[in-house]
Design a protein around this nucleic acid. Structure first.
Lengths: 157, 157
DNA sequence: CTTTTTGCTTCGCCAAGCAAAGTAACCTCA
DNA sequence: TGAGGTTACTTTGCTTGGCGAAGCAAAAAG
């Protein structure tokens, strides 16, 4: 079907664009894309743990340890042993980290958001409906997609 | 705006899903995601060059050289100096490579396509419109997005 | 027939990923 | 309570993917 191809092509364009934006963004912030992602995650949640981050990003803890080492060395985050569960480390964003995230606004978001918000109401609604439809077609049967979003709960110190 | 957030969330779901599929797929094929992508590219086009691949993937040629080394060692592709322009290498997929791509059908495509094709006509049209809209919002100013698809022309040997 | 450009490789480097093994803290249940 | 298992994290050692710079050979431009 032509139709299917069209939709796949559009999807790929989206993927490609976001990939490039990711690089751009991270470069601007002086961090690698992955480092920035971690920083964003922690900043969003105010506080996190290596375990939680590893689950959210779908990588092993060992990888996160290394990433946090680098972010810590750059003064973006701090590690502190949790008082509640002394096995856990509480990861917090420093002022510098917070500033980095804030000042390097996601270019994807920036550009896209600006345009999206200039759309008419019904257009926005329609796009959201379509995106959600596509998203659910993609991750519907992905039985561990939703768990991932909720597991790795953290008890902050 | 809530609306904007909704659309971004849907977008991220899409990104996450495709990322996971990428890993899944590559794992099934016994190749890394990146290696598989290269193989797919070459297979699609029947023949390519390191330069063309590097442009299409947005990485340097040095990176491609290394990737091709691995794919060649695994007997997935062959390198042959072009007779037309002796600076160029013609990259071709071997039978094994072709089989690998064929037998490890893109799970993203599989699952998504099946569902997409079961949609009503007007739904398909609407989704395509929305996706294309989003894509163009994302890569509109990215002046080399479209060129990328066409540049790196190759004169096969 | 130089000079510049292009296409590819090599080299040396670093980041990101994994698995496996190690350590410390927590939990269980007998 | 205390022995054995589980959980959270780190360390180690390895592979892959990525880059820039340097190099070489071929082609294109003067």
């Amino acid at each position: 079907m032509d139709r299917t191809d069209d939709s796949l092509i559009a999807l790929r364009r989206i993927l490609r664009a976001t990939e490039l934006f990711g690089k751009e963004l991270a470069h601007a912030a002086g961090l690698s894309p992955v480092q920035f992602r971690v920083l964003q995650l922690v900043a969003e949640q105010g506080m996190s743990t290596p375990k939680a981050i590893s689950v959210q990003m779908g990588v092993t803890q060992a990888t996160i340890t290394a990433l946090l080492d680098r972010l810590e060395k750059q003064g973006m985050i701090t590690r502190a042993r949790s008082q509640v569960d002394r096995r856990q480390m509480n990861i917090a964003v420093t002022e510098k980290g917070r500033a980095t995230v804030a000042e390097a606004p996601d270019p994807l978001q920036q550009r896209y958001v600006r345009q999206f918000e200039s759309l008419k109401d019904w257009e926005q609604a329609q796009i959201i409906a379509a995106l959600e439809r596509v998203a659910s077609m993609l991750d519907a049967e992905d039985m561990d997609a939703s768990p991932v979003l909720h597991s790795g709960e953290i008890k902050p110190s």
